[in-house]
Write a protein that binds this DNA or RNA. Structure first.
Lengths: 113, 113
DNA sequence: AATTCATATGAATGTTTGTTCATATGTTCA
DNA sequence: TGAACATATGAACAAACATTCATATGAATT
């Protein structure tokens, strides 16, 4: 760690004061981390078209049921999606509109290049 | 991979048709992945208050110069930040307003709980 | 009750990744 | 030109992670 330059001290203090808390920033990073995987993004993109059962997701993504289920559990733990059972099947959907909005923001950023 | 249920086939096809391309989704995941680290989020949050040199960031984050520089290079490679040199120092700033917007969206989601 | 279908989950494995340490590059100033 | 300062970068290492395989749970159907 470098020594602090006196003339920088107040910039540092002021920036620190205006930034969100460490706790908020840590949680924010955790949320983005969950979005930061191709399989999970594909799941979220699919669910933003409407709820879907696990086997549909497997077919759509052309991935094993196990791999999909593991990622669904990550998404669920992060409260990005929710589930409901209907008979033997589980239907998953985005937890709230906010999730779709975050996804769209990211996609828009990529598309605008 | 499970067998495709005939009654699901059209849902799958329709969802597939409405989803962004694989390429877009992959790039989107890559972008979110870059946001998905505490150190990088802290850097972005600091830079959203204004441009800052590397040593300021080190002091503010209380991290080694090397660790900060490595993450700055990740952020730069992903075109989330840009840099300019002023004498011996490098000043970093958010690449465009879009980056700040994505960050805010994530922070808001965390704060609203 | 037993079988089948749909999904979840634990352990193992190979890969990715963030930090550290050591060192290189580039700039200023004497 | 040489010393000092600011930043970048390569290699190494430990920790985190995504998928696979095997198996468990849970619901429907016979």
């Amino acid at each position: 760690m470098a020594d602090i330059h006196p003339e920088h001290a107040h910039i540092i203090e002021q920036t620190k004061a205006n930034m969100p808390s460490e706790e908020i920033l840590e949680k924010t990073a955790e949320v983005f981390k969950v979005f930061g995987d191709k399989t999970r993004i594909r799941i979220l993109a699919a669910l933003s078209e409407g709820e879907m059962c696990v086997c549909c997701l497997c077919d759509l993504l052309e991935m094993s049921q196990s791999a999909v289920s593991h990622q669904l559990s990550v998404l669920k733990a992060a409260r990005l999606i929710k589930s409901r059972r209907e008979g033997k099947q589980m239907y998953y959907s985005l937890d709230d509109a906010h999730i779709g909005a975050i996804l769209c923001t990211g996609i828009s950023h990529v598309e605008e290049d």
